[in-house]
């Protein structure tokens, strides 16, 4: 017996047959559990499909799509990341110089920058930008590819759709997020220095930079890297997951984008909070 639509990314609709109040209370938890399990399943599918990259020809096909994703998600985000970083640098960090005594600033600017920008704002704002401008686009793209039955086309060609549609996002999103962290931190530093320097030209650029760099330990870098890898990977997978839920109607695409964005924001905030907590215990 045939399914109406068959392909490798078939994600069953989970339904539970409880009734009444019990259903109302438990269904959201049950749904959350099932979605989590399916997303973990999708990660394992992606990891398994990664073995296809051992073949040189296939790696070339993958690399073209990977580059496209890094460009769209990471490189093109420089503009928006730059503008937000500039605003935060000029308006927020530079204000500190007005409120705190100069001695404290000179001694503790590095620590303040590291905690506020490097550890918290950089990852959080970059993640939100990735979700808002790239993950929504991926969910919509995957939904469109499903509507066009392109997953079936690839299956018919003996090509696993996971290889062309999922893997590039799976690897490109962490790279893009990490790039966005870097832009953000650099731009916040440069813009905050510029504003401070205008009001007090005796402040030394190298002094402030050295102050910040002395605070950024290997642990901090590792925690930010984990935020980028785990956050980017999960944001990408969640986009693919909800995009692949689209079956027949264009309205399902908008529904998928909404659900995916909600899940991505929650997941990314949770990852950030947990990893930041870990950093504070160091």
């Amino acid at each position: 017996m045939l399914d109406q639509q068959s392909d490798n990314l078939k994600i069953p609709e989970e339904t539970l047959s409880w009734s009444g109040t019990g259903k109302a209370i438990l269904n959201p938890f049950a749904n959350f559990y099932h979605v989590s399990m399916e997303i973990i399943g999708l990660i394992s599918v992606a990891l398994k499909a990664s073995t296809l990259l051992l073949n040189k020809r296939r790696r070339q096909l993958f690399y073209a799509l990977f580059q496209r994703q890094v460009y769209n998600a990471g490189v093109s985000a420089l503009y928006v990341n730059g503008v937000i970083g500039f605003l935060i640098g000029t308006l927020l960090i530079s204000r500190l110089f007005d409120y705190l005594p100069r001695q404290i600033i000179e001694d503790q600017f590095g620590q303040i920058f590291m905690v506020v920008v490097f550890r918290e704002l950089g990852p959080l704002i970059s993640g939100i930008i990735l979700i808002a401008r790239s993950a929504t686009a991926i969910t919509s793209e995957i939904g469109y590819l499903r509507l066009q039955r392109e997953f079936q086309v690839l299956n018919g060609l003996g090509i696993n759709p996971v290889f062309l549609f999922l893997l590039p996002v799976f690897f490109a999103f962490p790279v893009s997020l990490f790039l966005m962290f870097i832009y953000f931190d650099v731009i916040v530093f440069l813009s905050s220095f510029a504003v401070v320097w205008i009001s007090d030209p005796s402040i030394s650029f190298t002094g402030l930079l050295a102050n910040i760099l002395s605070q950024i330990t290997l642990n901090e870098i590792a925690i930010n890297a984990v935020k980028a890898i785990l956050g980017g990977m999960l944001i990408g997978i969640i986009s693919i997951y909800f995009g692949a839920k689209v079956v027949d109607s264009f309205t399902e695409v908008t529904e998928s984008i909404s659900k995916a964005t909600t899940a991505q924001l929650l997941v990314f905030f949770i990852i950030n909070v947990l990893l930041s907590l870990l950093a504070y215990t160091q």
């Binding site: 799509l65 469109y144 039955r149 392109e150 086309v153 018919g156 062309l164």
Partner: peptide, 11 residues
């Protein structure tokens, strides 16, 4: 296999 409609990869 030749599809009647679409059948190509948009990417």
């Amino acid at each position: 296999y030749v599809y009647e409609q679409q059948g190509l990869v948009s990417l």
